[in-house]
Simulated scan of single mutants.
Amino acid sequence: MEDIKDSNENSCTRNILVILGFSCVISVIVLIAVGISQNKPLPQNVKYGIVLDAGSSHTSLYIYSWPSEKENDTGIVQQIEECQVAGPGISKYAQKLQEIGDYLAECMEKTRDVIPVSKHHETPVYLGATAGMRLLRMESEQLADRVIDAVIRTLSTYPFNFQGATIITGQEEGAYGWITINYLLGSFFQNSGWFSGISEKMNHEKTFGALDLGGASTQITFVPENHTMESPENSLQFRLYGKDYYVYTHSFLCYGKDQALWQKLAKDIQVSSDRSLRDPCFHTGYKKVVNVSDLYKTPCTKKFKRTLPFDEFQIQGTGNYEQCQQSILELFNTGDCPYSQCAFNGIYLPPIQGNFEAFSAFYFVMNFFNLTSEKVSQEEAIRKIRNFCSQPWNEVST
Rank of each mutant, 00 (worst) to 15 (best):
K305M: 12
F304M: 03
D294W: 00
K267R: 15
C254V: 06
Y248V: 07
Y255S: 04
C254L: 08
K264R: 13
Q270F: 06
Y286Q: 08
R278P: 04
V290W: 01
F310S: 04
H283G: 04
D279S: 15
P280I: 05
Y246G: 07
K305E: 14
Y255C: 04
R239Y: 07
S272N: 09
P299L: 01
D294L: 08
R239V: 07
A260E: 10
R306P: 00
T284L: 14
K264E: 14
Q263M: 13
R275G: 11
F282P: 03
T249Q: 02
N234Y: 06
T284S: 14
V271H: 13
T307I: 12
L277Q: 11
Y246H: 15
G285Q: 10
F282R: 03
T307N: 12
V292G: 08
K303W: 00
L240A: 07
W262N: 02
P232H: 06
W262D: 02
Q259I: 05
K287Q: 15
T298D: 07
Y246I: 09
H283K: 03
L295D: 01
K257W: 01
L240M: 13
V271Q: 14
N291E: 15
V289A: 12
D258R: 01
L277F: 13
F282E: 04
C300Q: 05
D268C: 08
F304T: 01
L240R: 07
S251E: 02
D311S: 14
Y286K: 06
P280Q: 07
S235L: 10
V271I: 12
W262S: 02
L265P: 04
E233G: 00
L236H: 03
S276H: 14
E233Y: 04
Q237N: 12
F304E: 01
E233M: 07
P232W: 04
D268L: 13
S272M: 13
G256V: 06
Y296M: 05
T228D: 11
N291L: 15
V289W: 04
G242E: 10
P280F: 05
K305S: 08
Y245G: 11
L253Q: 06
D294Y: 03
S276V: 14
D311L: 11
V292I: 15
Q259S: 11
G285W: 08
Q263W: 03
K267A: 14
Y296D: 02
D258V: 01
F252S: 02
L261S: 13
G256H: 06
K243Y: 08
L261N: 12
V271F: 15
Q270C: 10
K305V: 00
D244H: 10
R278N: 14
Q263D: 05
T249L: 03
L240C: 08
N291P: 00
Q259C: 04
C281M: 11
Q259D: 09
R278E: 15
H283R: 07
V289S: 14
T284P: 02
Y248M: 09
H283C: 05
Y246R: 12
V247R: 03
K302N: 09
C254D: 02
A266N: 03
K287A: 08
F310V: 03
E233R: 13
S273I: 13
V290D: 01
I269C: 11
Y286M: 10
V271M: 10
K243T: 12
R278Y: 15
L295H: 01
F282I: 04
S251C: 09
V290F: 02
I269G: 07
L265F: 09
